[in-house]
């Protein structure tokens, strides 16, 4: 693995193209949370001609449903959820300008193709390290779909959020292939 790369959102093509599978990244800036229900509603709303609740161009989407913020903290525990459930939506979002997603676990071929075609990456964060990752989130506010509770779209400010490049824009794959 190479040295750590610091990036700030929104991400640009040149940011993406310098990333290779296995790179460690510390991400800062605004990112947006969305998981199953939010993705479904977001794409239905876009289809219906509505403006998305955040600027898709250069955006980073974090697949997370945080636990509630206790008093004095911006957010509760906030680690990644498993990403493949968002595979249905990811290629469309990348075609609309989204540059990266953060989650855990494998992605399907259509997502990997979309990363190549639209210059995107898929970042992995450590699953089950929600208390640890929460420390790198400095603010959180609900942007849309508040009725979805933990699944609402939130805008997070992150500082040096620790990530690994799982799938880069060149077809790379980080995960070990099981020896069956």
């Amino acid at each position: 693995m190479s040295e750590t790369i610091k990036l700030t959102t929104p991400l640009k093509d040149e940011d993406i193209l310098k990333l290779k599978t296995g790179d460690k990244v510390l991400l800062s800036g605004r990112i947006y949370t969305a998981r199953d229900a939010a993705h479904k509603r977001l794409l239905a709303d876009i289809d219906a001609g509505q403006e998305p609740p955040f600027e898709l161009q250069g955006a980073v989407i974090y697949y997370v449903g945080p636990s509630p913020a206790p008093p004095g903290r911006p957010i509760g525990s906030a680690g990644p959820t498993t990403s493949y459930r968002m595979d249905t939506y990811a290629p469309t979002l990348h075609s609309m300008g989204v540059k990266a997603s953060i989650g855990k676990g494998k992605r399907g071929d259509a997502v990997k193709e979309a990363l190549k075609e639209h210059k995107g990456v898929y970042f992995g964060a450590t699953g089950g390290a929600g208390a640890l990752l929460s420390q790198r989130i400095t603010s959180a506010k609900v942007l849309a779909y508040e009725d979805l509770g933990p699944e609402a779209i939130r805008e997070l400010e992150v500082e040096d959020f620790p990530l690994l490049v799982v799938n880069d824009a060149f077809g790379g794959e980080l995960y070990a292939v099981p020896r069956v």
């Binding site: 903290r73 509760g76 680690g79 390290a129 929600g130 208390a131 640890l132 420390q135």
Partner: peptide, 20 residues
């Protein structure tokens, strides 16, 4: 990281994982 997470959850009272 998982060991650090266990310690942080203990220190802060946050759940170990957001998926409770």
């Amino acid at each position: 990281q998982l060991l650090e997470n266990v310690k942080l959850a203990g220190d802060t009272g946050l759940p170990l994982c957001q998926d409770t």
